[in-house]
C-alpha cells in the first residue's frame, strides 16, 4: 500500500513537471541600443560605421564640385564591399545601412544595385506584355550612376590567454564611373577588446 502511495505521488509530480518547459526570456529593446555580447562585428558596428562614413563622404569637396559642374545631384550606387576579415560579416546589412544613410541625406540620388536591377528589368519586360500601355514603364529609361562606392573590411587580431583585441578596418572609396577617378576615400577603425564567452551546452 505504501508503494502505491509513493507511485501515485511520483506520477502526480511527473505530470505536473512534464508540463513545465523552460521558455527563453525575451525583452524588447531599441534597435539603436548599442549591444556587444560576443565582441564580433555586429549591427551596431555596421550602423555606426555607415553613419560616420556617409557623413564623411557627403561633407567632402567632391559633392560640391559635382553639383557646381553638373548643376544636379550626383547619382550614386553601392558596389561590392568585400569581407577580408577573420570574422563572418554580413556585408549586405552594412550595404543596406549605407544605402539608408545616403538616401535619407537627400544630397545624392541613389539607384538600385546590380542584383536589384535584374529583378526590376524582368518586371519591366513583363509589363510590356501584361500591363496597360498607360501604366507600363518604358525600357531603357534607367538612371545611370555617376559614382560607385566600393570597399573592403579587414581585421587584425591580437590574442593571448582568453583575451583578444580585434581591430576592424573599413575602407570605402567613391569612384567616378566615367573616368575611374577616386573622388573620396575614408577609413574607419573599430577596436574591440574581447574576453572569452561561455559556450553553450
Amino acid at each position: 500500500m505504501k508503494y502505491i502511495h509513493v507511485l501515485t505521488v511520483s506520477m502526480i509530480f511527473l505530470l505536473i513537471f512534464s508540463g513545465c518547459t523552460t521558455t527563453p526570456q525575451v525583452s524588447r529593446t531599441s534597435a539603436d541600443e548599442i549591444t556587444d555580447y560576443s565582441g564580433r562585428w555586429n549591427d551596431t558596428d555596421s550602423r555606426l560605421t555607415a553613419e560616420d562614413m556617409v557623413s564623411s563622404m557627403l561633407s567632402s569637396p567632391w559633392l560640391e564640385k559635382f553639383i557646381t559642374a553638373e548643376n544636379r545631384e550626383p547619382v550614386v550606387i553601392v558596389g561590392k564591399i568585400s569581407n577580408r576579415s577573420s570574422e563572418h560579416i554580413d556585408s549586405l546589412t552594412f550595404i543596406k545601412d549605407i544605402e539608408k544613410e545616403l538616401i535619407n541625406s537627400g544630397k545624392v540620388i541613389f539607384v538600385a544595385s546590380g542584383t536589384e536591377r535584374v529583378e526590376l528589368r524582368e518586371e519591366r519586360e513583363d509589363q510590356q506584355s501584361n500591363a496597360s500601355m498607360e501604366t507600363a514603364k518604358a525600357l531603357a529609361a534607367e538612371t545611370g550612376a555617376d559614382f560607385m562606392m566600393q570597399g573592403v573590411i579587414t581585421s587584425q587580431t591580437d590574442a593571448v590567454e582568453g583575451k583578444k583585441a580585434v581591430l576592424y578596418k573599413v575602407d570605402l572609396e567613391l569612384i567616378n564611373l566615367e573616368n575611374n577617378q577616386k573622388v573620396w576615400i575614408e577609413t574607419k577603425n573599430i577596436k574591440k577588446i574581447i574576453k572569452q564567452k561561455k559556450a553553450s551546452w
Binding site: 569581407n83 577580408r84 576579415s85 577573420s86 570574422e87 587580431t157 590574442a159 593571448v160
Partner: peptide
C-alpha cells in the same frame, strides 16, 4: 568569401600556438 574567413582564422590560431 566566408571560406576565406576560415582560412585566415587558421593563421591567427597558429600564431597563438607559438606561445
Amino acid at each position: 568569401e566566408d571560406a576565406l574567413v576560415e582560412i585566415r582564422r587558421i593563421q591567427i590560431k597558429l600564431n597563438l600556438l607559438e606561445d
